[in-house]
Amino acid sequence: MSKPPIVPETTPSGIAVDPRTLERVIPESRRPDGSVRKQLKVRPGFTPQEDIRRFRGTRQAQMDANSLPKGHIIGWAPPPQTAVPPASKAGLTKAQKKNEKRKEKRKEKRDETKVKDNWEDDDDGEAGSASSPPPAEKATSGEHTPENPNWAAASATQKDAEDAEAEGLADKLEKLEVR
């Protein structure tokens, strides 16, 4: 037989097992004025009202074990952690199929673009480059640049930039969409 723990666990009513005598006792305690209450023995077989558990039948106990956690909403399931495979193309409209193709092309385009290793090296190389055209040549070209604004050429580039920006926002909204 193993020995009881040095610091015995107490029941809700305060009864503990005395480690020396192995009897159930109410341990000594200190009153607010500083005096000490004596340790009281508890008769064998006595169970105070505070220690009596509420009776639960087998069905009630089983229902308690299977009950939902507090605050749970019936019918709500957390979103799946795994990525949902795309729906079959048979159930898609023409516009949805077209959008799928656009998404695939955008993903391919993103994969093709390379991230520069060091931004400072690229800036230095462009500024001190001998192959850059002189300012007079820039003025004659039909491109839109901050130094030489050409608004006729800029309208197409601005539209492309706005379309790209709109597509980026659409992708973010799809990620945030609750299903």
Rank of each mutant, 00 (worst) to 15 (best):
A95G: 01
K159H: 04
I52V: 09
S13P: 01
P85G: 07
T113A: 15
K38P: 03
R43Y: 05
P86I: 05
R179V: 05
A166M: 02
M63N: 13
W76E: 13
P86D: 07
D117M: 07
N118Q: 06
G45Q: 06
S13D: 08
D18H: 13
T140H: 08
K109M: 11
D64A: 15
K38C: 03
Q81S: 14
I52T: 06
D33Q: 01
K97Q: 04
H72D: 11
G142M: 14
G142E: 10
R56I: 08
E162Q: 11
N99L: 14
E126M: 12
A77F: 06
E28C: 01
G34V: 04
E23P: 02
P78Y: 03
K101F: 05
K159M: 12
D33C: 04
D171Q: 12
A164Y: 04
K103Q: 14
N66F: 12
D111F: 02
I6A: 11
K175M: 09
R110P: 00
G128W: 13
P79F: 05
G71A: 00
D33E: 03
S131T: 12
Q158C: 10
N148F: 15
I26G: 03
E112Y: 06
V25R: 13
L169C: 08
S35M: 09
R37H: 05
Q81R: 15
Q158A: 14
F46P: 01
T140K: 13
G168I: 01
I26L: 15
L176I: 06
E177S: 13
S29R: 13
E162C: 03
E50R: 09
L22G: 00
K70Y: 02
S132Y: 01
E104S: 12
P12Q: 09
P149G: 02
E104P: 01
D163F: 04
G14S: 07
D18N: 14
G128L: 13
N66W: 04
K116D: 03
E28I: 00
D51C: 02
K159C: 02
G34I: 07
A65R: 04
Q158M: 15
